[in-house]
Nucleic acid binder design. Structure first.
Lengths: 129, 129
DNA sequence: AGGTCATTTCGCAATTTCCCGAAACATCGT
DNA sequence: ACGATGTTTCGGGAAATTGCGAAATGACCT
C-alpha cells in the first residue's frame, strides 16, 4: 500500500519529461560523450548537467563510467527502458533541426583533424581549443 | 528560440509522469467512464480528477464529451499519442494488482444487476446506491 | 606537494505541481 | 422557479523541480 507499484514507471517518465534530458538522450543516441562535452553542447553549467545525468542514471536510462578524470556517458542497454526509448525517437522528429544541430556541435568538439580512433572522448576540451 | 520544438513531447511526458493519471489511462483502457466514476474509484476529490483530466485532454491523450449532466471520458484515438501509450501498457505490468482492483471497482460502480447494455455510464451513482 | 581540470555535492531562490474546499456553472427533475 | 447532482474554476498552502555558483572531491601532471 505504502509502496506505490507505479513508482518506477512514474520516475522514469518524470525523468524523460524535460527538454534538456531529452536532448541528452538524443545526443547519446548518436554515440557516447563525456559530461563536459554534454555541458558544452547544451550551454549549461556542468553542475546542472551532472544533476540531469544523475536522474537519467538512477532510472537506468544511461550508464556512466570513469575514464581518467572524465566520466563517459552512454545510453544504457537495459531491456526495461528500451521499448520506451524506441517509442520516443519518432516523437522527437519535430525537433530534428535542434537535435541535429546538437549532434553537429558534439562532433565539432571531438578531434576533427585526427583519426577518431586516436581521439577518444578522453581528450580534454582545452586541448582542442 | 522562444519556441521549443520539444515542448509538445515534454508536455505529453509530463502529463504521463503521475501515478493518478496513469491509473486513469489504465482505467479508460478498459472502457469509457464519467468523471464522477473516476473520482470515486481513485478516492480523490472531483475537482482534483477534473484537473488531471484537463491535462490529459490538453495533450490529446483522452477525449471528453457531455452526456446529460455527466462528462464521459475515453482514450483518444489520435495517432500522435498511440505509439507512446502502446509502449506504456507493458511497463505498467508491475502494477497489475492495483490496476485490476481499480477496474473491478469501476465495474462494481456500474449497474451489476441489469444488462450492461441497459446501463450506460449516464446512470448516476446515487441511483445505484 | 601543489596546480589544474572534470565532476559532484550543497545551499538557495524562483518556479511549478498537487490536492483540496469553496464557490461558480450547467443540467436535470419536480 | 427551485433544489439536487455533476463538473469546473479559483485561491491557497505544502511539496517537488530547476538552475546556478561556490565549495568539496577525485584524478592527472610536473
Amino acid at each position: 500500500m505504502t509502496s506505490d507499484p507505479l513508482r518506477p514507471l512514474v520516475d522514469t517518465l518524470k525523468v524523460l519529461a524535460h527538454p534538456v534530458r531529452l536532448r541528452i538522450l538524443a545526443l547519446l543516441h548518436a554515440g557516447e560523450l563525456c559530461v563536459c562535452e554534454v555541458a558544452e553542447v547544451l550551454g549549461l553549467a556542468p553542475s546542472t548537467v551532472s544533476e540531469h545525468l544523475t536522474g537519467l542514471r538512477r532510472t537506468g536510462l544511461v550508464r556512466e563510467w570513469k575514464v581518467g578524470r572524465w566520466v563517459h556517458v552512454a545510453l544504457s542497454d537495459e531491456a526495461a527502458t528500451r521499448p520506451l526509448l524506441e517509442a520516443l525517437w519518432p516523437l522527437m522528429a519535430g525537433a530534428e533541426a535542434e537535435l541535429s544541430r546538437d549532434r553537429a556541435q558534439a562532433r565539432a568538439l571531438r578531434c576533427d583533424v585526427c583519426d577518431p580512433a586516436d581521439c577518444p572522448p578522453s581528450r580534454t576540451l582545452k586541448e582542442h581549443a
